[in-house]
Design a protein around this nucleic acid. Structure first.
Length: 194
DNA sequence: GGTGTGATCGTA
DNA sequence: ACGATCACACCA
């Protein structure tokens, strides 16, 4: 399932606000499926009240403070996994939440993993749905995106020249919900919100 | 299309 | 107590 050139460590080694839009239209590959990233959100550290890392490093957020190009996977609402790409923030935390993607390969396997999806556009439209379709769980926390088993590759499709930008989803008022740190491919049918 | 609600448990 | 959510019911 080789669909393009693997992203090098240097690609991830930048601020999350810079990395986030650059990840649009890249291809996430792993566990016998592949999908084009169409929606992301940037999270930062001590200066971002919406981030898990806002109050400093804990066992859960340790990976977010580590080297770039690794997965930060967290468990939420008692039942869902969500995946982030670790960026760099010079000793502070930085990561990009993968919020939605468009199926590229292995769509039948995605349907098997996402039995509750009513239609194909629901397979990857949301951070927890994306993880379910890829089989990503807490066991993948801290794994290296450069080495696998989950990778991101560039297949030649450039990020949108003018990405959609909005505030982040799911944050309580006052928790950095006014920062325009969500980026998406405008008009893509697989977005978590239309 | 939109809104409202319950599920379910690790983290702080 | 509360969540970087989802599925389903219901209304439009």
């Amino acid at each position: 399932m080789k669909r393009g050139r693997a992203l090098a460590r240097s690609f991830y080694a930048r601020d999350s606000l810079d990395l986030a839009p650059a990840l649009l239209n890249k291809v996430l590959i792993g566990r016998h499926v592949a999908a084009r990233i169409v929606e992301v959100e940037a999270y930062r550290g001590s200066d971002d009240p919406g981030s898990h890392a806002h109050r400093g490093m804990t066992p859960r957020t340790e990976v977010m403070f580590g080297p770039p190009g690794h997965l930060y996977v967290y468990f939420t609402y008692g039942m869902h996994w969500c995946a982030n790409v670790v960026a760099t923030n010079d000793g502070d935390a930085a990561a990009v939440l993968l919020r939605a993607a468009a199926p590229v390969d292995g769509i039948e396997l995605m349907r098997e993993r996402r039995v509750k999806a009513r239609r194909d556009r629901d397979l990857l439209a949301g951070p927890a749905r994306l993880c379910q379709a890829f089989g990503i769980t807490g066991a993948d926390n801290g794994t290296d995106l450069v080495r696998g088993p989950i990778r991101i590759v560039d297949d030649g499709v450039a990020p949108p020249a003018a990405p959609g930008v909005s505030t982040r989803i799911g944050l309580s008022p006052g928790r950095g919900d006014d920062h325009p740190w969500r980026f998406f491919v405008p008009g893509d049918p697989n977005l978590s919100r239309p």
